[in-house]
Structure formats: C-alpha cells, structure tokens
C-alpha cells in the first residue's frame, strides 16, 4: 500500500540546512498494524506528515497504492487525505466551536455529502467509539479520552484504508489510552492499515510490526508473530 524509496527531508538551504530524514526505505502492506518509535526529534512526525500528504519530501519517492502522490497537485492530495487517510493527533485537534457530531462530520462536508447523510454517518461513527450519549457536546465538555475518541470517529467516518496516529495516547492516562488502543485493534481487525507513532514501548507492543527511527534513519524493523502482538 505504501512504498517509501530513499525518502529524504531537508529543512532550509545552504549552511543552515538540516537533514531531518536521511533516506528512508519502507514498505507497508495493506492491513498492517505498524508502530513507529524513536527519540524525540528523530523525524517521526515529519515522516508521518509526508505519508499523510500534509508535507512533501525533498528527495526520493513516495508511492501510495502504486501512485507517486508527491507529484500530484494540491486538489488531488486533498482528496487523498479526505478519502484515503484518517489522522489522529496527540492533541486531538478538534474544532472547539463545534460539537462532537459536527466535528465528525467535517471530512464528509469536504467529501460533498448531503447534510442528512453526513449526520447519519457521523452518528454511526460516534456510536462505534462509544460516544452515542455525547454527540451534541462541545470538546470543552468532554474528557481527554472522550475527545480522542471523537477524533478517532472523525478519522474513520469516511472509512479510509489508512489510519495515521501521532502519539494518540500521549496526552491520555493509561485507562483512556487502553480504550484508544482497543479501537485501533478493532479497526485493524476490519482490515484498516494502522500506522502509529509512540514513545511508549507498551503501546508499541500492540502493533504487529515495530519500526525504529533514529536521527532521521530507519534503524530497526521488527515483526511480531500474530499472537505476540498483545503482550
């Protein structure tokens, strides 16, 4: 599903240029559950933003479902984000003026869906993350764990094949984090490809495959046996 070939990212030019990603080669297949670990500043988020079409590499190739999306124009990349990728961020990134349901509807608005259909799908997604009783609440009226579940509902409402999560449990207590990880596990079971950045080895252990990045380079790529994933 995802193919990264000698992917490089450089900020700035000349003397002050910083190489953040120094030639990453990585292949992620359909339906994988992958975690990315690494020290702070190693380039994990940068890598994920490129995979999520929010950013572009400076060198190398990125193929999504066989297509070189770094060549695509803004419209096409926006559509890709809308239809194929769901994001979950450490700090939830919900719109504070909108209630849970409206937040979840957001991707569907840009998908051009009718209001009635949007509402129906948003409600279903919120039910799926166990928030059927919090649909009309503003983010400020929800706990951190609940807010992250709203964000997950928003990420999955358009049924994208790829879910990208940047430290989704980073701002949550252990119990809330468990709920989030359980949802990811379910999505994975449904065939969704999940890529998750984390600092926490215990969280990382939920994935089937672990990738370690250090100083902009991929230093380890481990696969667990099916049952070894949980433990």
């Amino acid at each position: 599903m995802i193919q990264l070939i000698n992917l490089q990212k450089r900020y700035g030019t000349g003397e002050i240029a910083v190489d953040v990603l120094k030639g990453i080669d990585l292949e992620i297949s359909e339906g994988e559950y992958l975690s990315i670990m690494g020290p702070s500043g190693s380039g994990k988020s940068t890598l994920m933003n490129i995979i999520g079409c929010l950013d572009r590499q400076t060198e190398g190739r990125y193929l999504f479902q066989g297509q070189d999306v770094s060549e695509a124009d803004e419209e096409k990349r926006a559509r890709l984000r809308n239809q194929n990728i769901g994001f979950v961020f450490q700090h939830f990134q919900l719109l504070s003026r909108m209630n849970a349901r409206q937040n979840v509807e957001l991707p569907l608005i840009y998908a051009g869906m009718s209001p009635a259909r949007r509402q129906k799908l948003a409600k279903e997604a919120l039910e799926r993350v166990g928030l059927s009783d919090r649909m009309e609440h503003l983010p400020s009226e929800l706990s951190g764990g609940q807010q992250q579940r709203v964000a997950i509902a928003r990420a999955l409402v358009n049924r994208p094949p790829l879910l990208l999560a940047d430290e989704p449990t980073g701002a949550l207590d252990t119990a809330s984090g468990e709920v989030v990880l359980k949802l990811f596990e379910e999505l994975h079971q449904d065939g969704c490809t999940v890529v998750m950045i984390t600092h926490d080895p215990e969280v990382s252990a939920h994935a089937e495959r672990q990738v370690l990045i250090r100083d902009g380079a991929l230093v380890e790529d481990r696969r667990f046996a099916e049952e070894g994933g949980v433990g």
Partner: peptide, 16 residues
Amino acid sequence: TREIGIRMSVGATRRN
C-alpha cells in the same frame, strides 16, 4: 490557523 490546519488535514482544498 489551527482550524485551517484541521480542515486541511481532513481534506479541505486550498480553494475550500
């Protein structure tokens, strides 16, 4: 700006 970033991440085009 944060709102703009969120909208773009869920698929808003620059034109949107």
